[in-house]
Design a protein around this nucleic acid. Structure first.
Lengths: 190, 190
DNA sequence: GTCTATACCTTGATAGAC
DNA sequence: GTCTATCAAGGTATAGAC
């Protein structure tokens, strides 16, 4: 049983308003006054629910970062094979596509996002590097590693602002990009 | 004949200090006070040389944006062919690699960069879209256009922070990414 | 436990004196 | 060309009302 009004609703309302405004105008261009105004409270009240503007961003992007990390970490216990590559790339694409809505905020304000992650950043970078290295295959050459980096970047194209127009379906994006990144990595054997 | 000191030097010194600080800490996290301090002048004096913080950023990234636009615009007068694709992608990679040093600033503060471009932004987006469409080939399907977007993204991997470590040479990056993006686009015929 | 009033410091920016 | 003084707006902190 929870109160029909009060803390819970306000906190959620702030979260929602922040997400909307960040997506529309970006993190830096959105002021706490705007957010508070939209919720119908005062700027100072935000600080009861969130300890800072960065904290607010951290909560918003939290699930995305966690999802990405989870997929990347799976590579640690998985033996490399073309099938395994296809599976992990597919899972990665699923995550990206799932969070397509948060995409604009994430892309536009990478700097702020990285700052918000902060303490986990080193770990995330290490995880990302490990994933990239795993993708490159056993005994990778320099080109292999470059291709792995390019493949991740290509998959992330699903977040790109150019695709936001709604002309592409999730299924199309998944199938096409999985195929494309797989083909890109396959140059390894040439 | 120019003064050994004065306007010219100060302006250049500001430019250099701003580039250094933006690269090291990002655009938003760098204050004009910091820049002025490093140059040895006062904050207000910056405004004699540059009309705003954005203006400073605009000058710094100016050549990069111009170079990119120039390459993309070449697609307008070029008939599509696999060879033409390879040529333009190569030119695009040349530009990206040439500006690798500015990469971190550009990637981290995309939002600020876009805001700084501002009046040219619509034109640049249109140019970028046209280039992407050209890359997709004649009578492109939906997957064709997705692959084109992915290819551009993959080529831009050359700017990625993960590659900054200096473990890759310009030539390696150029050759590998040109080959990889070409292969990615070639799925068109499958 | 939830929210407001108020004040503090930094920032980007402007005006005017030298 | 450079400085001092000043401004509005932003993020932040706290004391206290209910």
């Amino acid at each position: 049983m929870q109160h029909a009004t009060g803390s819970r609703d306000t906190k959620a309302a702030i979260h929602q308003a922040a997400l909307d405004l960040f997506s529309a105008q970006g993190y830096e261009k959105t002021s706490l006054r705007e957010i508070a105004e939209q919720v119908g409270i005062t700027k100072a009240s935000l600080y009861y629910h969130y300890s800072s503007k960065q904290d607010l961003l951290r909560v918003i992007i939290g699930t995305f970062v966690d999802d990405v990390r989870q997929v990347m970490e799976r590579s640690a216990g998985l033996e490399w094979s073309p099938e395994a590559v296809r599976e992990l790339l597919g899972a990665y694409l699923d995550v990206i596509i799932k969070h397509r809505a948060t995409g604009p905020t994430l892309m536009r304000d990478i700097g702020a996002v990285l700052a918000a992650i902060d303490e986990d950043l080193e770990g995330l970078i290490a995880t990302s590097r490990a994933f990239q290295l795993w993708l490159a295959g056993p005994n990778p050459t320099v080109p292999d590693r470059l291709r792995a980096a390019a493949a991740i970047e290509a998959a992330s194209a699903a977040l790109s602002a150019n695709l936001q127009a709604g002309e592409f379906t999730d299924a199309e994006i998944h199938a096409t990009l999985l195929d494309a990144t797989t083909a890109l990595l396959a140059r390894r054997n040439d």
